[in-house]
Amino acid sequence: MSSKRDNKTEKREVTSIRNDYVRSVEMEEKRKTGHRVRLFRRLTVFGLVVLMATIWIGSTIYAQTQTISEKAQLREDAIVELEKVEKQQVQLKEQILLLNDEEYLAKLARKEYFLSEEGEIIFTTPNNEQKDKEKPSKKE
């Protein structure tokens, strides 16, 4: 019999009392629910704005880092090129000094163009480079 009573009590609906207190509590609950919904929406919008700003800042920093690394590589390449040019400039200055020397010019002209002074006879001999090339081939 007790099971019949439990079923009956479960099936009965209790009607709520509609007085001022109950209505004010219901209105307060609706207001709190509405406030939570609006708060959630504001926090969502604020979170999206922060996320977008973070993405923008991150992409800007990444792009600047890439640009800086490219500029650093270009700078290193330019420094290497500058060193080469400075070495070449030193060599050219030395060559200018040598070319201003008449004895060097005469020696260079005799060597390169087979010019001779009066009474000189020119004999050509193989270059040392050709001898060096021949030596390894004989060893093998």
Rank of each mutant, 00 (worst) to 15 (best):
Y104E: 03
V50G: 00
T44S: 02
T125W: 04
I61N: 01
E70F: 10
E117T: 08
T44G: 00
G58N: 03
L43Q: 12
Y113E: 14
Y21P: 00
A109S: 12
G34Y: 06
E10W: 07
E112R: 12
L48I: 05
L92V: 10
K8G: 10
K11V: 02
G34T: 06
Q73P: 00
R110L: 01
E10K: 07
T54R: 07
K131Q: 10
Q73W: 01
Y104C: 05
A109R: 15
I96D: 11
Q130K: 11
E76N: 06
N128R: 08
R110W: 01
E140H: 01
L115C: 04
Y62E: 08
S59M: 12
Q95W: 08
P136M: 06
S59D: 03
V90P: 01
E102P: 15
K11D: 08
Q89M: 15
E120Q: 15
L92P: 03
T67N: 06
D101H: 09
K131A: 15
L51K: 01
P136D: 02
E117G: 14
K138I: 10
K4I: 09
A72M: 11
I122G: 02
K135D: 02
I121T: 15
K131C: 06
R41W: 07
L82A: 13
L115F: 09
I68H: 06
T125S: 10
R41A: 08
A106V: 14
Y21G: 00
V90D: 11
R31D: 09
K138R: 12
T33D: 04
S16K: 05
P126M: 10
T54D: 03
K111F: 15
E29C: 02
E118H: 05
N100S: 09
S3K: 05
E29T: 05
A78P: 00
Q91A: 14
R36I: 01
V90I: 15
G119Y: 03
